[in-house]
Amino acid sequence: MASERTPVRFYQVGSFAVGNRLVALEQRSAQSDPERANSLTSGHRACAGCGEALGARYALDAAMRATEGRLVAVNATGCLEVFSTPYPETSWRIAWLHSLFANASSVATGVAAGLRAKGRSDVRVVAQGGDGGTADIGFGSLSGMFERNDDVLFICYDNEGYMNTGVQRSGTTPGAARTATTQVVGPHPGNVFGQGKDMPRIAMAHEIPYVATATVADLFDLESKVERAMAHHGARYLHILVPCPLGWGALSSDTIRLARLAHETGIFPVFEAEHGEVTSSLAIRRRTPVEEYLRPQRRFAHLFDKHGEVSAPEVVAKLQALCDRNIERYGLSKEEGQ
């Protein structure tokens, strides 16, 4: 757990969800506050079970709380922008700007610079985008923002593909995953195996003040990381895994479960880093084989037979090896309380 405000974790349900009612009033989540900002309010057009909408709502409300409402958000083109603003409606109750797909980081730099020039140092800036707008087309712009250490928190909502355009492969799509451009055909069905773009580690390589990852399974953790990020100045990066029912071929009701499995298998390590060094990681409480994470997702259906048994053990083993490597690298297997 990242935040110092909850040294002990209280769990009241089998899902390991944090029991909000069990923590002191001032420690409860931003979302439980009836006075919360509702930055992304209801009525938007996201799919049922959209992890990105959930992540964005929590992240921005936490940022609004951390800045006492002095916030401007810049959005890259993508699902989040499209489902929130079809004319003449907007679901944003905060100052919000969308320019293009590739340039959210640069636009945010401009917002921060403009505010500084105008003496508005009280207003903070968040930029946000999907994995395409972060790891692929927006990569240069983001790296420039990091390198200049501009006072911007960039949040990547990673659903591991171009979901807005119909589920095509991105630089963060995992190996073997089916997308519309990595079809389940030929001797190596699904996406190729490679290093992918490990954005949090690339962000850390810029030695920026703060880098963190989170999932929509642990929203308390997510909020505390936003809060921690807003306590820093300079370039900050938060990478949130947001399952996409449509793109992953999963049940809308499984969004939180899949995000939790991503953490518990180790395929998505949850950690924090400051100035290029890992400072904390969220321990796995119940280590789970990767196939448990893969099985409920139709994008990995070709790895299983009709009875749900693994039919491509060598591919699953490769993915398991990635999980094991993450667990080792980020010390995720340590016992609770350590």
Binding site: S106, G110, A113, G114, K118, R120, S143
Partner: peptide, 28 residues
Amino acid sequence: ADCEYINVDSEMAAMSVAIGASAVGARA
């Protein structure tokens, strides 16, 4: 005075920074 000079990473970034600055009411 009171001018932020940003060495950007590309022309795409140059115009994008100008867009962001202009959108908060700064002359870019």
